[in-house]
Amino acid sequence: MIVRLLLWMMLMTAATADAARPAKPVLLIHGGAGVIRSTLTPQVEQAVRADLARALDAGYAVLEAGGSALDAVARAVVVLEDSPHFNAGKGAVFTHEGRNELDASIMDGATRRAGAVAGVRHVRNPVLLARAVMDKSPHVLLIGEGAEAFGRTVGGIDFVEPAYFHTDERWRQLQEALQKEAAGQSSSLGRAIHYGTVGAVALDSHGRLAAATSTGGMTNKRWGRVGDSPIIGAGTYADARCAVSATGWGEFFIRATVARDICARVEYGRQPLLKAARAVVMDTIPALGGDGGVIAVDADGNFTLPFNTDGMYRGWVGRDGKAHVAILADED
């Protein structure tokens, strides 16, 4: 009897220690879905993989140090925004008028606080302005000049001249789109071959989840068009069970409230994250006529990166602590 009691106490002590031990964190990132093999040169591929790896390293370093999922996703997205190879921040595409209009959002799953900005033109890292909206204002979404005016009152936001966002590749893409439009070959919001939105989701060692997304929108967009990236529940969502960042044809992701739908399936339908995300990305969105992908992680550290396009710039660090970067569909 005494031996059994001692064994029971040892087992209980071990179980308590395991419960108290911080869980290994998880980080996922994306740099856009819709990659076409024929347009991916070896030089671009090498640069993209290197920048994805840098973003993973930056975000995961926050998590390894015991930092929050919220800080980790913001840090990873900043690295992607600073790269010219993704349609966010430095690499943002041009509007019909030849401007860069940037959108971003961020959400804390532990509290369901969120912040977002849309149509900003002078903010180097829109995700940081979205974070400021969440942390330092009573609002969730600010747009255009008002968002920038708010940013100048809080400090810590880098403002740049519009020329900072100019890249020759994005300008060439606009000229091609304008020529096609003039020839009646496409509309101003026609299907793009690459949705360069960037994003990150994370689970930290304390079990907290967060998500963030940033984009330059669609090449040749007009009339102040805003896609799903700054829309909480469409392009970004996080709660205590699930965190999602999306990339794709924004109009369809808004109509399907993609990010929230995935998390609602997990919460109310008790669906495994993999099944929930796959159903939305592989069934719901194509049925509406759209395409794209998501990255998602749940509170147990399960994660998935489904997409219905030729590829998606993506990277992940699971509970094993190993970093992975991939682009095309056959790399997983």
Rank of each mutant, 00 (worst) to 15 (best):
V3W: 06
L7V: 14
W8N: 14
L11P: 04
M12T: 13
A14F: 08
A14V: 14
A20E: 15
P22G: 11
I29E: 10
V35M: 03
L40P: 03
V44W: 11
Q46N: 14
V48H: 05
V48S: 09
R49K: 12
L52K: 03
L52V: 10
A55E: 08
Y60K: 09
Y60D: 13
V62T: 13
V62K: 07
L63T: 07
A65D: 14
G67M: 02
A69N: 11
L70H: 08
V73W: 06
R75S: 14
R75D: 08
R75L: 11
L80N: 09
E81W: 02
H85P: 07
G89A: 05
K90D: 02
K90I: 06
G91I: 03
E97L: 15
N100K: 10
E101Q: 13
S105T: 01
M107P: 06
D108S: 10
G109Y: 09
T111E: 12
R113N: 14
A114Q: 03
A114M: 03
R124A: 14
R124H: 05
V127N: 10
L129M: 11
R131Y: 08
V133L: 13
D135V: 05
K136T: 07
S137E: 12
P138T: 13
L141V: 12
I143N: 09
G144I: 04
G146F: 05
G146N: 07
F150R: 04
G156I: 09
V160D: 10
E161S: 13
E161M: 10
T167L: 08
E169C: 06
E169D: 15
R170Q: 15
R172H: 14
Q173N: 15
E176P: 04
L178N: 14
Q179S: 15
A182K: 15
Q185I: 09
S187W: 12
L189Q: 13
L189D: 08
R191V: 04
G199S: 08
V201C: 10
A202M: 11
A202L: 12
S205W: 07
L209V: 09
A211W: 09
G217T: 03
M218V: 11
R225W: 12
V226N: 01
G227A: 08
D228V: 03
S229L: 02
A234S: 12
T236E: 00
Y237D: 01
Y237T: 05
A238M: 07
A238S: 04
C242V: 01
C242P: 01
S245Q: 01
A256E: 09
V258R: 02
A259M: 04
R260N: 12
G269W: 07
R270F: 14
Q271P: 01
M282Y: 03
T284D: 15
P286F: 00
A287R: 10
L288F: 03
L288K: 02
G290Q: 00
G290W: 01
D291P: 01
G292Q: 00
V294R: 04
V297F: 02
F303I: 05
L305N: 00
N308A: 00
N308C: 00
D310F: 01
R314A: 02
R319W: 04
G321H: 03
K322W: 00
A323I: 00
A323S: 14
H324N: 11
V325Y: 04
V325H: 02
V325G: 06
D330Y: 04
